[in-house]
Amino acid sequence: MAKKNSVGSLKAKRYTMDVIVHTFLIIIAIIWISPFAYLVAHSFRGGGNTTMYYSKFFPETFTFKHYQDLFTDKGLLDFPQMFMNTLKIACISCVISTFFVLSVSFAMSRLKWKLRRPYMNMAMVITLFPGFMSMTATYFLLKAFFGLDEHPERIHMALVICYCSGAGTGFYVMKGYMDTIPKALDEAAYLDGATKWQTFIKITLPLCKPMIVYQVITSFMGPWCDFIFCKLICRGSQDYYTVSVGLWSMLDMDKIDKWYTRFCAGSVMVAIPISILFIITQKFYQEAMSGSVKG
């Protein structure tokens, strides 16, 4: 009898615990979701109010107007243009920087050469400096090399170079992955008379596939999320803005009252594809982490 009681009380205790835990999780989930709910809701906000001063969390009427305006009203800020700018920069710089990362990682992981360790140490030291410290100087250099003042059309080339030049230090994850590929595979290839280049292309690269996908998407997302460097290099040339800088400038003092809802709409337009890409990277990252050569 006593035993049955204690089991019953244990069950009751577990039940109350479950209720508490799930309530807690629901509250947390609401807190975590609410900024995005607010963002999406207000991108569809109806009525004439386009400012950030709106006293309801969910608007009373809904409309697609802000999305339409974003793509049709190109007078002050040309959102479609910015979107294409970013897409272009992201595509080019993701190809180049993936190539850079792959070559550096291969040289670091699979090859033995004299300056390997010094280079790795140098790369480590460089990443310890705050990135913003050298930013102004990089801008001056790019300005001098490309004459950005007279040739604003070269801004995008300068940006691509900026995003790619970091690739020389961003090899740690890829190198770590290549380290897990057994050396015996390379040696077997050399015995069969393969050159190192052939080993790189035909053996190492195919084995790195999940990691390459991860790297490609990560470097593709870089330009979409960067707002500091692009702002610095573009200065006032709005034709060359990327979406992040464009969205940011919608919140400037002189624009915010008219553009706040469009900022919400634009943010949704950017956040959805980037989030999807991010989820894909996670899938490939986990796949990569489960090992290069199975069995």
Partner: peptide, 16 residues
């Protein structure tokens, strides 16, 4: 493999 990444690193990170 190293020449391009290395030069980009030197010119746009180390020199600044």
């Amino acid at each position: 493999l190293m020449i391009l990444p290395f030069m980009a690193l030197i010119v746009f990170t180390v020199v600044p």
